[in-house]
Design a protein around this nucleic acid. Sequence first.
RNA 1: GCUCCCUUCGUCUAGUGGUUAGGACACUGGCCUCUCACGUCGGCAACAGGGGUUCGAAUCCCCUAGGGAGCGCCA
Length: 518
Amino acid sequence: MQKWACFENSLQPLFTPALFSSGNFQTARNCTAKIRHSLFQPTDSHPMTVRTRFAPSPTGYLHVGGARTALFCYLYARKHGGQFVLRIEDTDLERSTAESVNAILEGMTWLGLDYDEGPFYQTQRFDRYNAVIDDLLARGLAYRCDCSKERLEKLRVDQMARKQKPRYDGHCCQRQIDANTPHVIRFKNPPDGVVVVDDLIRGRVPFANSELDDLIIRRSDGAPTYNLSVVVDDADMRITHVIRGDDHLNNTPRQINILKAMGHEPPRYAHVPMILGDDGARLSKRHGAVSVVAYRDQGYLPEALLNYLVRLGWSHGDQEVFSIEQMIELFDIGDVNKAASAFNTDKLDWLNQQYLQHADPQRIDRLLRPHLGHLGIDPATGPALTAVIKAQAARAKTLTELAEISAFCYRDFDEFDEASAKKHLRLIAREPLEKIRAAFELLANEDWTIETLKHTVERVAETLQINMGKVAQPLRVAIVGRAASPGIDETLLLVGKDATLRRIDKALAYIAARGAEM
RNA sequence: GCUCCCUUCGUCUAGUGGUUAGGACACUGGCCUCUCACGUCGGCAACAGGGGUUCGAAUCCCCUAGGGAGCGCCA
């Protein structure tokens, strides 16, 4: 019980039915109900309340890295009684897709990461971005640039050759380019001084303005760029804490400069380290599941994934298992580690198994059905599914595995597991099997109970003057197909009398055939 | 190339100048036992390297190495 000792002192025990039936596990079908209208209207909310946002770009699925960032944003907002907003950064019209948006919403819903506002779509806020850009232009804080891609490319190559960092040289800064000629708009970055990113995780990170250049904030097609739209949104949406991947740390000084040009105070920043694959390399498709809904499909419980994710880069003493309530209470963004961490499926499996065996069987019943269906099994054709779950939950790491190891309760298996049959279905097992079969046949259906079954097996062992194992193991292989299952009495109860007799006959035939071969 | 970030068992981490460097997963040995699993008891295993500062450094400073990110009309 050591591992669970942490709950003894907590007000909110982890495995309460309330936690597991709290409606966090609906499928994506309900997502659409969540999509309120997305045109953000600035409101006069109290400036002091914590507001975080998760701002994915819809160019793929919600992957585990994004999910953890979203979780941190969610936890931080909840901890401080603030709001968590979801914003879809779809300004890249080429790569953004509606399917990706749906996949992200589906992932958020499955994980139960409820947002208070949004989703807001940046593509619906272009007017606002353009107004900000025009204002910057009017105030001389931005300028038009008509440098050709060729000139820019040559500049880059020359600078690299001179071992310099490639930067825009300000060529168009003083030129007065007509608004009618094709152009982009660049932000006039301060030429000198230092911008300090006061990061909640990294600490103070100073950047020299001389390292930065005049970045493009409006493309030639009129669309605003990322660094501009994020800044405008974060300001308009009154985001107080920007929690995001540390690949954005280098963008932050530029964003702070734009924010200041707009007359806003920068929010607090927290750059969380990235998640690596098992092998320490950047997470990618070849590491298997990267999309969170793939974990759902593979039979992981959302609370297990969340628990796994929260412990990646964060910890609270020696505690490993956290309910959502405990995470909200204990999590603090400032406690997050600086170093990247590797995703370890073994540990996720362990957590999932822990949650599986402590979960309410009624809920697992519901979640397990699709996995059984996938195997072509209809639970109505056999024992109560909750009974099977109670017997098997500690034996499976995932719902998928739980379905696989429980299939024998609902249908005859095709073949014996080779190693198990070889070891247990031998000539020496014939007599015990025949004896036990005869005893079972005499049992009335109403005597097919756990107690009677236990006694019957024990009596056969006694009669034959052999160990329990010499009877139970051949019997187990006979009725399950392999040498692993719940206790033999429980297993018999689940399989039922008819199937038991039928399968023992099959095992006896197998032994006979095998004996003939030898 | 330049700028910035990072570095404790295989992995996730505890640790904030004095610890036999703790826990968890994995691996492994025992117990429990009709099997498997659970549970339980034990074992293996780490401060990237080098210089300082200090009576004393995983902890503070510097250098090196290794890893990562950014330097786009991507986000």
